[in-house]
Computed example of a mutant assay.
Amino acid sequence: MSFNNLDQLYRQVIMDHYKNPRNKGSLEDGTLTIDMNNPTCGDRIHLTMNVENGVVKDAKFDGDGCSISMASASMMTQIIKGKKIEVAMKMSAIFSDMMQGKDYDDSIDLGDLEALQGVAKFPARIKCATLPWKAMEKGVKES
C-alpha cells in the first residue's frame, strides 16, 4: 500500500471515530471521574472509568474538541477496557512516545490508535491527541 493510500486510510479511521465515537457518555457508577482541558485550543474531556480489582471494566468520555482529541478519546476508551491499570498506563507511555515521533515499544497492539501516528508531524496537535490519555493518567494517579 502506498504512503498516500495509508495516509487516506488513517484519515478515514480518525474521522470514523470522530463522527461515530465509541463509548461517548458518562458512567453513573464510575469509580474515577476526571475533567481536563487544553487551554491552548479549547479541547475538553470528561472521562469516567469503572475500575475493579485493578482492571478497567468500563470507560466513557464526553467533551468538546477537534477531531483528533475526540477520536483519540474514542480509541482510548475502546482499547483500555478489560485491561489491567498497569497495561493501560504502559499503553499511555507508548502512545506518548508515538505522538512525539520517538521509537516506541510495539509489543502491545495499539489498534486504531496507530492512525494518529501522523500527528507527530504537527507539534501543536500533539496535546489534542494526548489529552484523553493525560486524563486517564491523572485519574489513576489520584485514585
Rank of each mutant, 00 (worst) to 15 (best):
M1Y: 03
M1S: 14
S2I: 06
S2Y: 07
N4T: 12
L6E: 11
Y10E: 07
Y10T: 13
Y10M: 03
R11S: 05
Q12D: 14
Q12G: 08
V13W: 06
V13H: 08
H17R: 14
H17V: 08
H17L: 11
Y18Q: 02
K19V: 00
N20F: 01
N20W: 13
N20H: 15
N20V: 02
P21W: 07
P21I: 05
R22I: 14
N23R: 14
N23P: 03
K24M: 13
K24I: 07
K24R: 15
K24T: 01
K24C: 09
G25P: 09
S26N: 10
L27C: 11
E28K: 15
E28G: 15
L32A: 08
I34P: 00
I34E: 14
D35T: 09
D35W: 10
M36N: 07
M36V: 10
M36A: 05
N37Q: 13
N38R: 12
N38G: 09
T40S: 03
T40L: 12
T40D: 11
G42W: 07
D43Y: 09
D43G: 08
D43P: 14
D43F: 13
R44S: 13
R44C: 10
I45C: 01
H46F: 09
L47P: 11
T48S: 13
T48G: 04
T48D: 03
M49V: 14
M49N: 04
M49S: 13
V51Q: 08
E52K: 15
N53Y: 09
G54M: 11
V56L: 08
F61I: 11
F61K: 08
D62I: 05
D64C: 04
D64L: 04
G65N: 05
G65Q: 07
C66S: 02
C66I: 01
S67H: 09
I68F: 06
I68D: 01
M70C: 03
M70F: 01
A73V: 05
A73R: 14
I79S: 01
I79M: 05
I79F: 08
K81E: 10
K81P: 00
K81I: 11
K81D: 02
G82K: 10
K83M: 07
K84A: 06
I85G: 01
I85N: 10
E86P: 03
M89I: 15
M89N: 08
K90V: 01
K90S: 07
M91T: 00
A93V: 10
I94H: 12
I94T: 12
S96W: 06
S96G: 06
D97V: 00
M98G: 06
M98Q: 03
M99C: 14
Q100T: 01
Q100F: 02
G101D: 12
K102M: 11
D103C: 02
D103G: 04
D103K: 15
D103Y: 06
D105P: 04
D105S: 11
D105A: 02
D105Q: 06
D109Q: 07
L110C: 08
D112F: 11
D112C: 10
E114L: 05
E114D: 00
E114A: 00
A115G: 11
L116P: 14
L116M: 06
V119S: 12
A120F: 14
A120C: 12
K121I: 00
F122P: 02
P123F: 12
P123Y: 05
P123V: 09
A124H: 10
A124R: 09
R125T: 07
K127N: 13
C128G: 00
L131K: 11
K134D: 09
A135W: 13
M136Y: 06
K138E: 12
K138M: 07
G139F: 01
K141F: 00
S143P: 00
